[in-house]
């Protein structure tokens, strides 16, 4: 059988497995965003113990391999409750990504110019309102490209969940190559599916980035001229010293 024959034959299997991978990654990322937000908030807290806890969490997660985290969570939790592989995998992926996302959020917030926060506070906007209206939207804009990158990594990392028996995309290729003894073809094939998902995701993130950066595009007349009201016209002579 040629690669093409295999491709056609296995397409329904792979497409179904793709949905599992997408669901798994999506669930993991939603949890990771919330958790990452909380961790970032802890790391930026003025309260020492919270800060240390957040920093320790990030250090722990970043310092250990994802595959170990998946195994520890899967076997650790199944000691206590019977947890489906899907949720064990999703939780492990979520915990793993939350540490990276927390760091992305933190750097995004710290990139918001201090003057903008001061301007907002000077208008009487409280800490929380300033966070919601000024810091969060601006942080999101600067972090979106990095966040998109993290999502792409997460899609590919989800393949490791196959090792706890989840029949997602990668596990499908492993199963098939065990049947037909065509490892090269099967792993090439599964790579095509991952690539397709990543390309679509990249496109979506780019579009989002584009629509969020409207303000970066200069609209017209760089230094004005005709727009000055009569009120201002006469003031020009006042000029600099």
């Amino acid at each position: 059988m040629t690669f093409f024959d295999y491709f056609v034959e296995y397409a329904p299997l792979f497409i179904e497995a793709s949905w599992v991978t997408l669901r798994l990654t999506a669930v993991a990322l939603v949890i990771a965003m919330v958790l990452g937000g909380v961790i970032a908030w802890m790391v930026m807290s003025r309260f020492g113990p919270l800060r240390w806890l957040g920093t320790a969490y990030i250090g722990l997660i970043r310092g250990t391999p994802l595959i170990a985290q998946i195994f520890v969570l899967y076997f650790g939790i199944s000691e206590i409750v019977k947890m489906p592989a899907f949720w064990a995998g999703a939780l492990a992926l979520a915990a793993h990504n939350s540490a990276y996302i927390a760091e992305i959020f933190r750097s995004g917030f710290q990139a918001v110019p201090k003057g903008l926060v001061e301007a907002s506070r000077s208008l009487g906007m409280g800490r929380r309102k300033t966070l919601r209206r000024v810091q969060a939207p601006l942080a999101l804009r600067t972090t979106l490209p990095v966040l998109g990158n993290q999502y792409i990594i997460a899609v590919k990392d989800s393949s490791l969940v196959s090792f706890i028996g989840m029949t997602e995309l990668f596990q499908t290729s492993r199963n098939l190559q065990a049947q037909n003894y065509e490892p090269l073809q099967m792993y090439l094939m599964v790579s095509i599916y991952y690539l397709a998902i990543v390309l679509v995701l990249t496109f979506v993130v780019n579009r989002l980035e584009h629509s969020l950066s409207k303000h970066r595009r200069p609209v017209d007349t760089p230094s004005g001229g005709s727009d000055r009201g009569s009120l201002v016209e006469s003031g020009k002579s006042e000029g600099a010293e």
């Binding site: 003057g115 903008l116 301007a119 000077s122 009487g124 209206r133 000024v134 601006l138 804009r141 303000h215």
Partner: peptide
Amino acid sequence: RSRIGMVFQSFNLFPHMTVAQNIMMA
């Protein structure tokens, strides 16, 4: 602070809002 207007050296307009939105927010 809502009773005290402040104008900064570096303007500090919110770049993600239009001019009108800048003035409307607070």
